[in-house]
């Protein structure tokens, strides 16, 4: 692949093959803004205290312990899969240096998430064999394997594509992007999120919940960026978004809901009081509908959100600095010293 320098007056599309290096003039300043916002969200795994969770773990019922161990096993490999797709597919085809800046930042965040979930595993799971088993879950536990297979199928779907020359190539790329943004980050992770929030609503596993808060703030950004990329492509090449693509997107979301629902079945198999499989399924359908609407595709289910405890994640938080690690802040404040700014 050779570097291409393009005169600024020549209109090029985001998915045109090449290696655009030009940041001035900047074609997609909104990508650059997202990159800068993402940096303000910087956090480190060391800020999360997971040890306080151990006494909660001991108090959980057998059914709840099963739920937590399955979640930990899913988390063990989930973010690594996303990071791999980012490097192998997304970075290659999003031909905008400012877009690639965001993707570089996203890759770093995925790495922090991997570290967070590894620390979680090491803290929650004492035995070495059990830790190995968590990583093997992607092969051995059918409910997790099915989700992983779904992801790998979409990674592989464009893995052999080096350049997006035809409309067909570009649609395949779009489907990969939709899969990772809407189905994996937007649905699988949102499903996992609900379990963590359910436990937290009962005052359990606060350490996991605080780390998860940060992880999901990042994931929300990743998803928003991916949707931004999709909208950008839509404005540049509206013809790509035909009825067939919409039908494929709906089919993909429906399959993702089934994958996640069978995972829920496994997690809740022993019956967790306060969290029914029916509600979980409805929640997943609700989330899937939201993703479809965000993608400009008619929703499939018309389901509402059954989980009142999810309200808690939708409002701003106020923590007492002495009791909890405050997660609502930003880093990297910039500017010049001055004495007459408005405040």
């Amino acid at each position: 692949m050779t570097a291409v320098t393009v005169p600024s007056d020549q209109r090029r599309a985001l998915l045109d093959p090449g290696m655009d290096l030009t940041l001035r003039p900047m074609r997609y300043p909104h990508f650059y803004d997202r990159f800068r916002d993402a940096i303000k969200n910087t956090w480190t795994v060391e800020e999360v205290d997971l040890h306080a969770d151990l006494k909660d773990l001991a108090r959980l019922s057998a059914a709840e312990q099963h739920l937590v161990s399955r979640l930990v096993a899913f988390f063990a490999t989930g973010d690594t899969i996303v990071a791999n797709n980012l490097v192998l597919n997304l970075y290659q085809h999003v031909n905008s240096p400012e877009g690639r800046l965001f993707l570089s930042r996203q890759l770093y965040e995925e790495a922090v998430h991997v570290q967070f979930y590894l620390t979680l595993l090491d803290t929650y799971v004492p035995g070495e064999q059990a830790r190995f088993a968590a990583f093997a879950a992607v092969e051995n536990i059918p409910s997790i394997k099915r989700k992983a297979d779904f992801c790998f199928r979409w990674i592989d779907s464009i893995f052999s594509l080096r350049e997006l020359r035809t409309a067909e190539d570009r649609r395949r790329f779009l489907l990969n992007l939709v899969c990772f943004a809407a189905c994996i980050e937007g649905l699988f992770f949102y499903g996992a999120f609900a379990y963590v929030y359910f436990l937290r609503s009962r005052g359990l596993l606060n350490g996991l919940a605080s780390g998860t808060n940060w992880v999901f703030r990042d994931e929300s950004m990743h998803m928003a960026f991916a949707f931004d990329v999709i909208e950008t492509i839509r404005s540049e090449e509206p013809d790509l978004f035909d009825d067939e693509l919409a039908a494929q997107v709906r089919e993909m979301l429906a399959e993702a809901v089934e994958c996640e629902a069978q995972f829920a079945e496994d997690l809740l198999v022993q019956g967790v009081s306060g969290l029914s499989l029916t509600d979980m399924r409805e929640y997943l359908q609700h989330v899937a509908d939201r993703r479809l609407v965000q993608l400009g595709v008619p929703p499939l289910y018309g389901s509402g959100n059954p989980f009142a405890f999810m309200e808690l994640q939708d409002v701003q938080e106020l923590s007492n600095f002495f009791e909890r690690r405050v997660s609502a802040y930003q880093v990297g404040v910039t500017g010049e010293v001055s004495f007459d700014d408005d405040f």
Partner: peptide, 14 residues
């Protein structure tokens, strides 16, 4: 201060 971005909301209409 407020976080630069937030978790995407789940309970308001799509």
């Amino acid at each position: 201060s407020r976080p630069a971005t937030r978790i995407q909301q789940a309970t308001v209409a799509a």
